[in-house]
Measured scan of single mutants.
Amino acid sequence: MDSLVVLVLCLSCLLLLSLWRQSSGRGKLPPGPTPLPVIGNILQIGIKDISKSLTNLSKVYGPVFTLYFGLKPIVVLHGYEAVKEALIDLGEEFSGRGIFPLAERANRGFGIVFSNGKKWKEIRRFSLMTLRNFGMGKRSIEDRVQEEARCLVEELRKTKASPCDPTFILGCAPCNVICSIIFHKRFDYKDQQFLNLMEKLNENIKILSSPWIQICNNFSPIIDYFPGTHNKLLKNVAFMKSYILEKVKEHQESMDMNNPQDFIDCFLMKMEKEKHNQPSEFTIESLENTAVDLFGAGTETTSTTLRYALLLLLKHPEVTAKVQEEIERVIGRNRSPCMQDRSHMPYTDAVVHEVQRYIDLLPTSLPHAVTCDIKFRNYLIPKGTTILISLTSVLHDNKEFPNPEMFDPHHFLDEGGNFKKSKYFMPFSAGKRICVGEALAGMELFLFLTSILQNFNLKSLVDPKNLDTTPVVNGFASVPPFYQLCFIPV
C-alpha cells in the first residue's frame, strides 16, 4: 500500500510540474494548442506526416506557434517570411542545433551535424575549407563525379535492359564520391566492405524516417530501456565508426604531411598542428563522427533524390523527352556531361530543381535551437528552445509555385524558357546551418541524371499514369515507394 501511495504522489508531482512548466512558459512563447500533461501535443500531431499537421496548425495559430513534445516546448516556423527572418536575418541567433537524443547517444555531441557552439563552428569551418581545397564546386571533385558517372552508366548497362530496382546502384554512385573525398578511394560496386557500408546507410535513412524515431526523440528514456529499431540505428553508426577508425589508422601509418590526399589526411594534419593548443576540438573521436556525418549527409540524401527523380521522369515521359532533346543538342553522344553545360541547359536545370522542390526530401529539416534569449515577432523565446522549420511550407508555397503539388519544371523557367532562380528554393535548409555539401549534391544530381539520360531511355513496367509517387515514409525524410524500371541503351 505504501508503495502505491508513493507512486501516486510521484505521478501527481510530475503532472503538477508539467502543468507549471507549460503555464509559466506560455506567456512568453508564441500561441499554440493546449498541451496535455506529460505528453504535450503529441496526440494532435500525425507522426506519419508531421508536415501536414504543421500546415493545419498554422492555419489556426499563424506562421509562428508553439507545440509541446512531452514536456519540451518547440517553436514552429511556417512559411517563407518566418523562416527567412529566423535563419537568414537572425542567422546567428537561430544557428543552434536542437535536442536530438538519439544523435546524442550516437555521437556524444561530436561531428558537424549535431554539434553546437565553438566545437560546431570550428569543425564546420575546417570541413568547408577542406572540401573547397579539394575542389568542391571546382574541377578536381567534378572529375571524381564524372568518373563515377561513367562507372554508374557501365553498371546500368550490365542490367541488359531487364527490369531492376535502382535503389542499390543509385546509392553506390554518391557513396563512392564521398569515399573518394574521405578515403581517396572508390570501391567496386561488388566489394563486400562497400556493400556493408551501403547497407547500413540505407537502413539508417529508413529507420530515421519512421514514426518510432519521432517518439524516441521526444521521450528519450525509451532509447535506453525499450527495444526497437533505434538500437539497430545505433549499432549501424557504431559499425561505421569502427570502419572509419580502421581507415584512420591506415592513414596514420602512411600519411605524407607534405601531400595530403583526402579529408582524413587533412584532419590528422590539423590534429598535429593543434596538439599544443589544448583542449582542441580536433580529436580522433571528432574525426570519426565528422566522417560519419559526411557519409550520412552525402550519400543517402543524394541517392534518395536520384531514385525519386527517375520515378518522376517515368511518370512524366514528356519531361524526359525534353531533357534528352536538350542533352542531344548541347552535349551530344561523344563526350561526358560537365558542369559548364548546365548554363546552356535551362530546361534540365529546371527539372533538377523541380525534383528537389517537389519531393521535399527533408520536410522539417533537422531541429534548430536559439543560442540566446531572443525577441522574435513580439515573442520571447528562451535560450536553448528547439525550433522546428517547415521546409515544406517554403518549397510548396502556392504563391511562389502555382499548383505546388504538381510536378512542373516551369516553376523554374521564365516566359522565355530561361532558368529562373527562386529564393524559396531551400531543399538544403538556409542560413548558417545550410548543408555543407550543397554544391557537391547539386553537381552530382546534374551529372548523374544527364549521364543516365544521355545513355538510356527509361521504360516503366506499368502505365506511367498508374505510377504512385507518394512517399512511403514522410517523417525525417521523404522516401519514394518501391518501383522497377528498364534502362534501355540509346
Rank of each mutant, 00 (worst) to 15 (best):
D2K: 02
L4F: 15
L9H: 00
L15A: 09
L15P: 02
L17A: 12
R21F: 14
Q22C: 10
Q22T: 14
Q22N: 14
G25D: 15
R26G: 13
T34L: 09
P35L: 02
L36G: 04
V38K: 02
G40A: 03
L43M: 13
L43G: 13
D49E: 08
S58L: 01
F65Y: 14
V76Y: 04
L87P: 02
D89L: 09
L102S: 10
L102I: 11
N107L: 08
G111I: 02
V113Q: 15
S115H: 10
G117H: 11
K118C: 12
W120G: 05
R125V: 08
L131E: 04
L131Y: 05
N133V: 06
M136A: 14
K138R: 10
V145L: 05
C151P: 01
E154A: 08
E154W: 05
R157M: 06
K160S: 08
T167N: 09
T167R: 09
F168K: 09
P174V: 07
C175P: 02
I181T: 05
I181N: 00
D188C: 11
Q192D: 06
F194S: 02
N196M: 12
N196S: 13
M198L: 12
N202E: 10
E203G: 09
I205V: 14
I207K: 05
I215E: 02
C216S: 03
N218P: 11
F219P: 03
G228V: 06
H230S: 08
N231S: 14
L234R: 14
M240Y: 05
K247V: 10
K249V: 12
H251K: 09
S254G: 10
M255A: 13
D256I: 15
I264G: 04
C266R: 14
N277Q: 14
Q278E: 14
S280D: 13
S280E: 07
F282N: 04
E288N: 14
L294E: 01
L294C: 03
G296A: 15
T299D: 01
E300K: 08
T301N: 11
R307S: 05
R307E: 01
L311F: 03
H316K: 05
A321Q: 06
A321E: 14
V323M: 08
R329I: 12
G332I: 02
C338A: 07
Q340D: 08
R342H: 05
S343C: 12
S343E: 11
H344G: 10
P346V: 05
Y347P: 00
Q356T: 07
I359E: 03
L361H: 08
C372Y: 12
K375L: 07
N378V: 01
Y379M: 06
T385P: 00
T386C: 12
T386L: 09
V394A: 08
N398A: 12
K399G: 15
K399N: 14
E400A: 10
F401Q: 03
P402Y: 06
N403V: 06
M406Y: 11
K421D: 15
K421A: 12
S422R: 06
K423L: 10
M426A: 06
G431S: 05
C435A: 04
E444M: 05
L445H: 08
L458A: 01
V462Q: 13
P464Y: 08
L467R: 02
D468Q: 15
G475L: 10
S478A: 15
F482N: 15
L485Y: 01
C486F: 06
I488V: 15
V490N: 12
